[in-house]
Simulated scan of single mutants.
Amino acid sequence: MQDATNRRFRHATMKDYPQMERIYAHARELMARNGNPTQWGNAFPKPQTVKEDIREHRAILLADTLGGKERILAQFALCPGLDPTYAKIEGAWLDNDSYVTIHRIASSGLVRHAARDCIEWCLKHYGNVRVDTHPNNKAMQHVLESCGFARCGLIQLIDRTEDTTRIAYQRHEW
């Protein structure tokens, strides 16, 4: 069994990009097999978005070392500041305090609970976290709710023309 004590978080670099693309491809396949084929479709996130996340230091990796070789266990974009997609919500956010947003979270499938570890790390370091997911993404809804996130309502993505509804969540560590 893999020892979780050597897990660490770090910012992604352009050297990580090929592996990150493979992890996103794995996540798209997994979502499609589990009844959620449209959240990311065949092309989300776009390569330029992933590269911009890396350049802007938003791309965070959960990694470990096994047999002397680093493995990426999960990845996500951590976005500080106001998210324009969250300006309108059918429902209500918990508050209007400053927050960070988790976007584009994906697990490599190498270990269990990697996405949960990423979410818990964000809560520990930032306290007020918002995130959204597709109504068909039952796995992510379960993870978020088991991590204590409140379902705040529905938002509409502003960067797409179809399949735009997402369930919005927030957790604020007071």
Rank of each mutant, 00 (worst) to 15 (best):
Q48Y: 10
E90R: 14
R7G: 02
P80C: 05
H11C: 02
N34I: 07
W121F: 13
K15H: 12
E120N: 06
I167S: 04
V111W: 01
L94E: 03
I54Y: 07
T38C: 12
P37G: 06
H113Q: 11
L157W: 03
Y86N: 08
R58Q: 12
G91N: 10
R33W: 04
D95M: 01
D159W: 13
N136E: 15
I155T: 08
N136A: 14
T164N: 13
P18S: 09
R116K: 14
R71T: 03
P18A: 14
I23Q: 13
A106P: 00
G91I: 10
A27Q: 07
A150M: 07
T5S: 15
I54G: 05
A168Q: 09
S108V: 12
I72K: 13
G91W: 04
I23C: 11
G35K: 09
H103Y: 11
I54D: 01
M140D: 03
A25H: 12
L110D: 01
Q141E: 02
D83M: 05
E173A: 07
D163M: 00
A168M: 12
Y17V: 13
E56A: 12
C79T: 14
M20C: 13
D163R: 00
Y126K: 03
A87V: 12
D132C: 05
N6S: 08
A87W: 03
L82R: 13
H134C: 04
W40A: 03
T133Q: 10
M20I: 14
R71Q: 10
E90K: 15
E145P: 01
D95C: 15
Y86F: 10
R10M: 10
D132E: 09
L144E: 00
W121T: 03
L61P: 02
A87K: 15
F76I: 07
Q170K: 07
V111A: 06
M14Y: 05
R151G: 13
D95T: 13
I119M: 08
T161I: 11
N34Y: 03
H11E: 06
V111P: 04
R7E: 03
Y126F: 15
D97T: 11
L154T: 15
